[in-house]
């Protein structure tokens, strides 16, 4: 009798669990992105319906999530096919056994640690009462800060006890109100807005922390999607078209983006023409991220370029 009950319970559990991972029968392509100017080519793809033209019989679903961890989790549970994120969270996923690689670069952009406190000129000026806002531990902002700490103090986690996880808009608000948050590791447009305020200044730029140019956001997909050549090629081609479109039709692109981001056209133009705002499919800086993360035990294994990029 007991054995019978156990069988029922187990099969019931299997039923519950298996229904979670059921995949949609019809052809749908799920793409996940985040907020911010770094994702502008994706916005163009959406607005110009580039993917719809390349994949006529496929439904394209765009998902905007507020952090990389959610995108990674959505991809792990097979709810998203292509995800866009910073390089470090991608490497962390790979290191924890996710069968995925980079399919394309998306953007390089400036980033940096901004404070309103006149007394904080370098990382060494932070006291233990100060708090630094960034999106998450393990995010590209966190790793850049850790890289700078390693350079300056020889200790990557020197400032980790000051971290507070906050979304960019919340951190921006906090910094503006000059309350508990002393500094924010920001990306555009928040970085530009914060630096436009005369009270704020930059302590450290992402480029200084990293030591050279690097790709900020990459597109990542799993093996199953990579093997689905039709969709894989289409997404790559779509990215190429979107980036080319932005270069060749700057004014039109800015008009389109200004409506979808609800940012004034002139302001947006100023943002997009800032030094360091580059949209490109090239991927740069992978080895340095891997080396640093391995050296400081954020990951356990070493990876070569073949392990990181499809083809």
């Amino acid at each position: 009798m007991k054995g019978f009950k156990a069988v029922i319970i187990i099969s019931f559990m299997m039923l519950i669990f298996s229904s979670c991972t059921k995949k949609n029968g019809e052809e749908t392509l799920f793409i996940a992105e985040q907020y911010g100017l770094a994702y502008a080519p994706l916005q163009i793809m959406k607005e110009k319906q580039i993917l719809e033209a390349l994949l006529p019989n496929t439904k394209i679903e765009w998902v905007t999530l507020s952090n990389t961890t959610s995108i990674r989790e959505a991809m792990l549970s097979e709810n998203v096919d292509v995800g866009f994120m910073g390089i470090p969270p991608f490497i962390i996923g790979l290191d924890n056994g996710m069968d995925w690689k980079i399919m394309s670069g998306l953007s390089k952009n400036p980033s940096g640690l901004v404070t309103y406190d006149k007394n904080i000129k370098t990382l060494a000026d932070f006291t233990s009462a100060d708090k630094i806002a960034l999106p998450q531990p393990g995010s590209i902002q966190h790793i850049l800060l850790a890289m700078a700490c390693e350079k300056q103090f020889g200790e990557a986690d020197r400032l980790d006890h000051l971290l507070v996880a906050m979304k960019h808009p919340d951190a921006y608000q906090s910094l503006e109100s000059q309350s508990t948050i002393k500094a924010h590791f920001a990306s555009p447009p928040y970085l530009f807005d914060e630096l436009n305020n005369a009270d704020n200044h930059l302590i450290l730029s992402g480029e200084e922390a990293f030591g050279e140019d690097f790709t900020f956001i990459v597109g990542v997909c799993g093996r199953e999607f990579y093997n689905n050549k039709k969709q894989y090629e289409a997404v790559n081609e779509g990215l190429k078209q979107a980036i080319t479109y932005m270069k060749q039709n700057e004014a039109e692109a800015i008009a389109l983006l200004s409506t979808s981001y609800s940012i004034d056209e002139l302001l947006l133009k100023e943002y997009l023409t800032q030094e360091g705002m580059i949209y490109s499919q090239e991927v740069e800086g992978l080895e340095r991220f891997v080396d640093f993360m391995l050296r400081n035990e954020y990951i356990k294994n070493d990876y070569q370029l073949d392990d990181l990029i499809w083809e």
Partner: peptide, 24 residues
């Protein structure tokens, strides 16, 4: 939710950190 932490954070922050580093 907020990751509001003291110098080391508590057990909630521990969970949050494990999640962001994908340590299931």
């Amino acid at each position: 939710i907020f990751g509001a932490i003291g110098s080391l954070g508590g057990i909630g922050w521990y969970l949050f950190e494990k999640r962001t580093f994908m340590n299931t």
